[in-house]
Design a protein around this nucleic acid. Structure first.
Lengths: 189, 189
DNA sequence: TTTATTGGTGAATAAATATTCATTTACTAT
DNA sequence: ATAGTAAATGAATATTTATTCACCAATAAA
């Protein structure tokens, strides 16, 4: 028998993501995905049951790569250093993969998203919450509810990376250090 | 002759916005808008030429109310105070009208958005940039490129208000003061 | 080689959805 | 009152778009 071509799934994902960046989720067509991935439209249905399944699979993949997998095992490091490491990887990821981010933002509110996928942010957030809490115990982070601090980190990372991409600003080491410095000034005790 | 009913446009806008919050832009149907607004679907076309026109009109309206019109004439006040006033009104607006914000975020990347509408953020941003620049001159704001500072303010406001809505946290005076304090710590010299 | 099996194709079909339009209703001016 | 006009309706139509399927191609095992 003929085996499935592993590269095709990647090609489909890549095409989908690129199209979302061009026309948004509302403008996304299966035919356009097939064309961009250089496949017949029927081939999409060999790899995915439906548009909905394809998009849910893609969502889950990006969420893993963009959040969960960015959490290294560094609980032994000082809180500030832990935050920096995560800041750097999050910014780099979002900067390099802006279209994916647009997709996540739009798919989250679409009626296609599965039960399971809509819970996927929690794990990442609770990890950051734990970090902030131990920072508060050590008296180096402001004694404030996490609902003040989390959106700062999350929202800033989000918007900063998008802003840099849109304005064609290169993501240098310095940009990362500076932006982290700003965050740290905001949350340090 | 029978005059157009002014309230219908509002009803259509309200229905559209509510639906976006429920099913996102990708799930938005003209028939659903009509039903929620308690109109026949044909009536939508008396008030708007097409779905695209309806959504562009709505986008422009929300952008005006949510950004441009929030800029009061307060250039005589100290920079920190100016920022606080704008911070407060932006947070209140976004908190109270979360569905509108979801719409803005999604429509911005859709193929339906008009040339004109895609430029609408600029005016607001350049106003804030001017404020930050005069803050730098007065040496009370960090001497950093605005592309570090703008996303902090914009992204934090965005995410904070969404986070509070989703987690059902009330928007008290204290929340506004505290969050502004965090911002100010981040950007002050 | 040959055969069996699955991948791949894209035109055809089915389903979903925006838009139209013949008709009715409500309002204004005369 | 009544006529004239435009709003309002919603079933019918047009359009768009996801999905299927009859057929062909490639690969692996026999």
């Amino acid at each position: 028998m003929k085996p499935k071509d592993g590269k095709k799934v990647t090609a489909i994902y890549d095409a989908t993501v690129a199209l979302i960046g061009e026309v948004g989720l509302a403008g996304l067509r299966m035919s356009a995905i097939a064309e961009k991935a250089k496949l017949a439209s029927g081939t999409l249905y060999i790899y995915f049951e439906s548009k909905e399944h394809l998009l849910n699979a893609l969502y889950s993949k990006i969420m893993m790569e963009g959040t969960i997998q960015l959490l290294p095992n560094i609980t032994h490091l000082p809180v500030k250093k832990q935050l920096y490491v995560i800041w750097e990887s999050v910014i780099r990821f979002r900067y390099g993969r802006n279209d994916e981010m647009i997709f996540l933002d739009q798919f989250r509110y679409s009626p296609m998203i599965s039960e399971e996928n809509s819970k996927l942010t929690e794990k990442f957030i609770s990890h950051v919450e734990k970090m902030l809490d131990s920072g508060k115990e050590e008296m180096i982070v402001k004694e404030l509810d996490n609902h003040f601090l989390i959106p700062l980190l999350y929202g800033y990372a989000n918007d900063l990376s998008r802003y840099l991409v849109v304005r064609n600003v290169a993501l240098t080491e310095e940009v990362i250090t500076r932006s982290f410095g700003i965050c740290w000034d905001a949350i340090k005790a």
